[in-house]
């Protein structure tokens, strides 16, 4: 059961696992998202495509609660809550994950420390109840497994978070975090940008391995390249802060062939919107 923007109005009585409803967001006083709606179920992969400045990053940052993005209206429902009212860390604990387009450097904190702290936070470890924290053996086993899929070696764990990482290393590190934190809704923001062909393959393999009935994915991307490796179930086109069309993977192919400018000129030539199915 999929709901997309075209169908939301008709099927509001059926709740999706993750539902964005009429979301309006401003940045520095300027309205960027002008009422977007999208429904993602676990088990599905959605791609949000759009030209520069269409509001893609605003969408991803707002969903995760970045303080610079002001919500003007709308709701985002996940597990019976409007997550827009929750602080960022609560959204993560609830099962959301954002792979950043520009992962941030945290000097002096090793990847190992960071990953472990994040896993423990997710498990609700409050510094007291040791049974809630991940033990060393379990931690190592978990990392070993996931790192081999991403072709990362051990030395990576003793490096400081994103410091001196190449573009590919940063993105692989993001996906490693996703793999160990096991979210239910993952937002991948321009994960393919700055990736060489090997990295894009390792990253895609890792994401594809995680795909399944327990994970809903929202891939935010300018280019279709990554969608050749991670096949989306649905493609949504975001232009000027609004979803202008939703369709299947063929929509991405068309965009690749024609480009966004063609879209803006003659939108009717693009594949038709999917009906709710």
């Amino acid at each position: 059961m999929a709901l997309n923007s075209a169908a939301v109005g008709k099927l509001t009585e059926v709740m999706a696992d993750f539902e964005i409803k009429d979301l309006r967001v401003s940045v520095e006083g300027r309205e960027i998202l002008k009422g977007v709606s999208l429904a993602v179920n676990k088990g599905e992969v959605h791609a949000v495509m759009g030209p520069n400045g269409s509001g893609k990053s605003t969408l991803s940052h707002t969903l995760m609660g970045h303080p610079n993005y002001k919500v003007l209206g709308g709701q985002v429902l996940f597990k019976g809550k409007d997550i827009l009212t929750l602080p960022t860390e609560q959204r993560a604990k609830l099962g959301m994950f954002l792979a950043l387009q520009y992962p941030v450097v945290v000097p002096g904190i090793t990847m190992s420390n960071f990953l472990r702290t994040a896993i423990n936070a997710k498990r609700g470890f409050d510094g007291k109840d040791k049974s809630k924290s991940i033990n060393v053996k379990e931690f190592r086993a978990l990392l070993k497994n996931e790192m081999s899929v991403l072709r990362m070696d051990d030395s990576f764990l003793s490096r400081y978070v994103n410091e001196g990482f190449s573009g590919g290393e940063k993105k692989r590190a993001e996906i490693l975090q996703m793999a160990v934190l096991k979210p239910e809704i993952a937002i991948l923001d321009e994960t393919d940008s700055g990736l060489d062909i090997d990295s894009i393959k390792f990253v895609s393999d890792a994401v594809n391995k995680m795909r399944g009935p327990e994970l809903g994915v929202l891939i935010i991307t300018h280019y279709t390249r990554v969608l050749k490796f991670i096949k989306p179930d649905y493609v949504h086109v975001l232009v000027n802060g609004e979803f202008v069309r939703s369709g299947g993977p063929e929509l991405a192919d068309w965009l690749e062939a024609k480009g966004y400018s063609e879209w803006v000129k003659e939108p009717d030539k693009a594949p038709a919107a999917l009906e709710a199915r």
Partner: peptide, 25 residues
């Protein structure tokens, strides 16, 4: 930095502590 750490489930207070501890590492 705070947003990044918080987006991984780490509280703001703990994120600040991590950043400070990293700074003096």
């Amino acid at each position: 930095q705070l947003f990044y750490l918080q987006s991984r489930g780490i509280t703001r207070a703990e994120a600040e502590t991590m950043i400070v501890n990293g700074f003096i590492e």
